[in-house]
Protein backbone atom coordinates (compact mmCIF):
# COMPACT_ATOMS: atom_id res chain seq x y z
CA UNK A 1 0.00 0.00 0.00
CA UNK A 2 2.69 2.39 1.08
CA UNK A 3 4.93 1.57 -1.86
CA UNK A 4 2.05 1.88 -4.35
CA UNK A 5 1.24 5.28 -2.92
CA UNK A 6 4.82 6.49 -3.11
CA UNK A 7 5.11 5.15 -6.66
CA UNK A 8 2.01 7.11 -7.72
CA UNK A 9 3.42 10.21 -6.04
CA UNK A 10 6.72 9.73 -7.83
CA UNK A 11 5.05 9.30 -11.22
CA UNK A 12 2.90 12.40 -10.73
CA UNK A 13 5.89 14.43 -9.60
CA UNK A 14 8.03 13.12 -12.43
CA UNK A 15 5.38 13.98 -15.02
CA UNK A 16 5.12 17.46 -13.53
CA UNK A 17 8.89 17.93 -13.63
CA UNK A 18 9.03 16.85 -17.27
CA UNK A 19 6.15 19.15 -18.10
CA UNK A 20 7.80 22.11 -16.40
CA UNK A 21 11.17 21.36 -17.95
CA UNK A 22 9.62 21.40 -21.41
CA UNK A 23 9.25 25.15 -20.95
CA UNK A 24 12.95 25.48 -20.11
CA UNK A 25 14.62 23.99 -23.21
CA UNK A 26 18.16 22.88 -22.52
CA UNK A 27 21.06 24.81 -23.94
CA UNK A 28 19.26 27.79 -25.38
CA UNK A 29 17.86 29.77 -22.49
CA UNK A 30 19.42 33.03 -21.65
CA UNK A 31 17.99 35.15 -18.89
CA UNK A 32 17.64 38.91 -18.93
CA UNK A 33 19.55 39.19 -15.68
CA UNK A 34 22.38 37.00 -16.93
CA UNK A 35 22.74 38.97 -20.14
CA UNK A 36 22.80 42.22 -18.23
CA UNK A 37 25.59 40.90 -16.01
CA UNK A 38 27.66 39.80 -19.02
CA UNK A 39 27.16 43.11 -20.79
CA UNK A 40 27.72 45.53 -17.94
CA UNK A 41 29.48 43.42 -15.31
CA UNK A 42 32.87 44.82 -16.26
CA UNK A 43 31.72 48.41 -16.17
CA UNK A 44 29.76 48.01 -12.93
CA UNK A 45 32.27 46.12 -10.83
CA UNK A 46 35.58 46.18 -12.68
CA UNK A 47 36.01 42.40 -12.51
CA UNK A 48 36.70 40.49 -15.71
CA UNK A 49 35.47 37.21 -14.24
CA UNK A 50 31.72 37.75 -14.47
CA UNK A 51 30.97 34.96 -12.02
CA UNK A 52 33.08 36.85 -9.50
CA UNK A 53 31.29 40.09 -10.27
CA UNK A 54 28.00 38.30 -9.56
CA UNK A 55 29.24 36.51 -6.44
CA UNK A 56 31.07 39.43 -4.80
CA UNK A 57 29.44 42.34 -6.61
CA UNK A 58 25.78 42.03 -7.49
CA UNK A 59 25.00 39.24 -5.05
CA UNK A 60 27.61 39.99 -2.38
CA UNK A 61 24.98 39.78 0.33
CA UNK A 62 24.41 36.13 -0.58
CA UNK A 63 28.11 35.56 -0.17
CA UNK A 64 28.06 37.14 3.28
CA UNK A 65 25.30 34.68 4.15
CA UNK A 66 27.28 31.84 2.63
CA UNK A 67 30.34 32.67 4.70
CA UNK A 68 28.07 32.71 7.73
CA UNK A 69 26.68 29.26 6.88
CA UNK A 70 30.17 27.82 6.88
CA UNK A 71 30.95 29.68 10.11
CA UNK A 72 27.80 28.27 11.73
CA UNK A 73 28.68 24.77 10.63
CA UNK A 74 32.23 25.05 11.97
CA UNK A 75 31.03 26.31 15.35
CA UNK A 76 28.22 23.76 15.44
CA UNK A 77 30.64 20.95 14.73
CA UNK A 78 32.92 22.19 17.47
CA UNK A 79 30.02 22.48 19.90
CA UNK A 80 28.67 18.99 19.17
CA UNK A 81 32.06 17.35 19.46
CA UNK A 82 32.94 19.31 22.60
CA UNK A 83 29.62 18.60 24.31
CA UNK A 84 30.24 14.88 24.54
CA UNK A 85 33.96 15.08 25.16
CA UNK A 86 33.76 16.55 28.65
CA UNK A 87 32.87 13.38 30.47
CA UNK A 88 35.24 11.07 28.63
CA UNK A 89 38.69 10.34 29.87
CA UNK A 90 41.43 11.08 27.38
CA UNK A 91 43.36 8.16 26.10
CA UNK A 92 46.18 9.01 23.77
CA UNK A 93 46.48 6.69 20.81
CA UNK A 94 50.01 5.87 19.81
CA UNK A 95 50.49 6.82 16.19
CA UNK A 96 53.18 5.27 14.17
CA UNK A 97 55.41 8.05 12.80
CA UNK A 98 55.33 8.63 9.06
CA UNK A 99 58.15 7.46 6.87
CA UNK A 100 60.92 9.85 5.92
CA UNK A 101 59.80 10.19 2.31
CA UNK A 102 56.26 11.11 3.30
CA UNK A 103 57.45 13.48 6.00
CA UNK A 104 59.86 15.34 3.74
CA UNK A 105 57.45 15.38 0.83
CA UNK A 106 54.71 16.92 2.94
CA UNK A 107 57.00 19.58 4.30
CA UNK A 108 58.21 20.39 0.80
CA UNK A 109 54.73 20.61 -0.72
CA UNK A 110 53.07 22.49 2.12
CA UNK A 111 54.32 26.05 1.30
CA UNK A 112 53.73 25.47 -2.42
CA UNK A 113 50.10 24.51 -1.86
CA UNK A 114 49.63 27.50 0.43
CA UNK A 115 51.07 29.74 -2.26
CA UNK A 116 48.75 28.27 -4.87
CA UNK A 117 45.73 28.78 -2.61
CA UNK A 118 46.71 32.40 -2.03
CA UNK A 119 47.16 32.87 -5.79
CA UNK A 120 43.68 31.47 -6.43
CA UNK A 121 41.92 33.84 -4.09
CA UNK A 122 44.00 36.93 -4.81
CA UNK A 123 43.30 36.59 -8.55
CA UNK A 124 39.61 35.77 -8.04
CA UNK A 125 38.44 38.76 -10.06
CA UNK A 126 40.62 37.92 -13.07
CA UNK A 127 40.75 34.15 -13.41
CA UNK A 128 38.46 31.25 -12.58
CA UNK A 129 38.74 30.89 -8.84
CA UNK A 130 38.01 32.89 -5.76
CA UNK A 131 37.86 32.92 -2.01
CA UNK A 132 36.09 29.64 -1.44
CA UNK A 133 38.24 27.69 -3.85
CA UNK A 134 41.44 29.23 -2.54
CA UNK A 135 40.37 28.60 1.04
CA UNK A 136 39.66 24.97 0.27
CA UNK A 137 43.13 24.62 -1.30
CA UNK A 138 44.74 26.12 1.81
CA UNK A 139 42.79 23.80 4.09
CA UNK A 140 43.89 20.83 1.98
CA UNK A 141 47.51 21.81 2.61
CA UNK A 142 46.90 21.62 6.35
CA UNK A 143 45.07 18.32 5.94
CA UNK A 144 48.07 16.92 4.12
CA UNK A 145 50.40 17.97 6.92
CA UNK A 146 48.05 16.45 9.49
CA UNK A 147 48.01 13.15 7.65
CA UNK A 148 51.61 13.08 6.52
CA UNK A 149 53.51 14.57 9.43
CA UNK A 150 51.17 13.21 12.10
CA UNK A 151 52.16 15.10 15.21
CA UNK A 152 52.19 18.60 13.78
CA UNK A 153 49.25 20.77 14.83
CA UNK A 154 48.22 24.32 14.17
CA UNK A 155 47.50 26.68 17.02
CA UNK A 156 43.74 26.90 17.49
CA UNK A 157 43.82 30.44 18.89
CA UNK A 158 45.66 31.56 15.81
CA UNK A 159 43.12 29.91 13.49
CA UNK A 160 40.19 31.27 15.47
CA UNK A 161 41.53 34.80 15.41
CA UNK A 162 42.20 34.69 11.66
CA UNK A 163 38.65 33.46 11.16
CA UNK A 164 37.24 36.16 13.36
CA UNK A 165 39.23 39.02 11.92
CA UNK A 166 38.62 38.09 8.29
CA UNK A 167 34.88 37.79 8.97
CA UNK A 168 34.98 41.23 10.54
CA UNK A 169 36.85 42.61 7.53
CA UNK A 170 33.97 41.49 5.29
CA UNK A 171 31.31 43.10 7.47
CA UNK A 172 33.32 46.27 8.04
CA UNK A 173 33.99 46.61 4.29
CA UNK A 174 30.24 46.43 3.79
CA UNK A 175 29.57 48.98 6.50
CA UNK A 176 32.23 51.31 5.10
CA UNK A 177 30.38 51.15 1.81
CA UNK A 178 27.25 52.11 3.69
CA UNK A 179 29.01 55.03 5.29
CA UNK A 180 30.90 56.54 2.36
CA UNK A 181 30.00 54.93 -0.95
CA UNK A 182 26.61 56.23 -1.90
CA UNK A 183 24.80 54.91 1.17
CA UNK A 184 24.49 51.27 0.21
CA UNK A 185 25.64 48.30 2.21
CA UNK A 186 28.48 46.49 0.40
CA UNK A 187 28.74 49.09 -2.34
CA UNK A 188 32.06 49.62 -4.05
CA UNK A 189 33.77 52.65 -2.55
CA UNK A 190 37.23 52.09 -4.01
CA UNK A 191 38.34 53.05 -7.55
CA UNK A 192 37.76 50.30 -10.09
CA UNK A 193 41.16 50.63 -11.74
CA UNK A 194 42.04 49.23 -15.15
CA UNK A 195 40.51 45.98 -16.28
CA UNK A 196 42.68 42.85 -16.25
CA UNK A 197 45.17 44.15 -13.68
CA UNK A 198 45.70 42.83 -10.19
CA UNK A 199 44.82 46.09 -8.46
CA UNK A 200 41.38 46.58 -9.90
CA UNK A 201 37.73 45.89 -9.16
CA UNK A 202 37.55 47.98 -5.97
CA UNK A 203 36.50 46.01 -2.92
CA UNK A 204 36.26 42.63 -4.66
CA UNK A 205 39.89 41.55 -3.98
CA UNK A 206 39.65 42.70 -0.36
CA UNK A 207 36.50 40.66 0.20
CA UNK A 208 37.91 37.65 -1.62
CA UNK A 209 41.13 37.70 0.43
CA UNK A 210 39.05 37.89 3.60
CA UNK A 211 36.89 35.00 2.42
CA UNK A 212 39.92 32.97 1.41
CA UNK A 213 41.57 33.35 4.81
CA UNK A 214 38.31 32.73 6.60
CA UNK A 215 37.39 29.60 4.67
CA UNK A 216 40.92 28.29 4.93
CA UNK A 217 41.14 28.72 8.69
CA UNK A 218 37.57 27.47 9.21
CA UNK A 219 38.02 24.27 7.24
CA UNK A 220 41.39 23.72 8.96
CA UNK A 221 39.57 24.11 12.27
CA UNK A 222 37.01 21.52 11.20
CA UNK A 223 39.78 19.11 10.21
CA UNK A 224 41.54 19.75 13.51
CA UNK A 225 38.33 19.06 15.47
CA UNK A 226 37.71 15.83 13.62
CA UNK A 227 41.30 14.62 14.00
CA UNK A 228 41.23 15.37 17.71
CA UNK A 229 38.05 13.30 17.91
CA UNK A 230 39.68 10.33 16.21
CA UNK A 231 42.49 10.15 18.76
Amino acid sequence: MKSVFSLILLVVLGAGVVFTLSSIPFGSTSSDVGEYYIDSGRADTGATNIVTSVVVGYRAFDTLGEVTVLFVAAIGLGAILAAGRENEEKKKAEWEPASLVLYTGCRFLFPLILLFGAYVFIHGHLTPGGGFQGGAVIASAFLMVYLGCRKKRISRTWARNTESISGLVFVVTGLTGLAVGGHYFLSNFLPEGTLNTLFSAGIIPIIYIAIGLKVGSELTGVIDDLIEESE
Binding site: S31, Y37, I38, V51, L195, N196
Partner: peptide, 18 residues
Protein backbone atom coordinates in the same frame (compact mmCIF):
# COMPACT_ATOMS: atom_id res chain seq x y z
CA UNK B 1 32.91 30.50 -19.48
CA UNK B 2 31.84 34.07 -18.64
CA UNK B 3 35.37 35.37 -18.13
CA UNK B 4 36.91 38.19 -20.17
CA UNK B 5 40.45 36.94 -19.71
CA UNK B 6 41.72 39.23 -22.46
CA UNK B 7 40.15 42.33 -24.02
CA UNK B 8 39.48 40.53 -27.33
CA UNK B 9 37.00 38.05 -25.85
CA UNK B 10 33.52 38.53 -27.27
CA UNK B 11 30.51 38.52 -25.04
CA UNK B 12 28.31 36.46 -27.37
CA UNK B 13 27.87 32.80 -26.50
CA UNK B 14 28.78 33.13 -22.86
CA UNK B 15 26.83 30.94 -20.47
CA UNK B 16 24.61 32.51 -17.85
CA UNK B 17 26.82 33.44 -14.84
CA UNK B 18 23.99 33.49 -12.28
Amino acid sequence: APIFSSPEVESILMVDPV
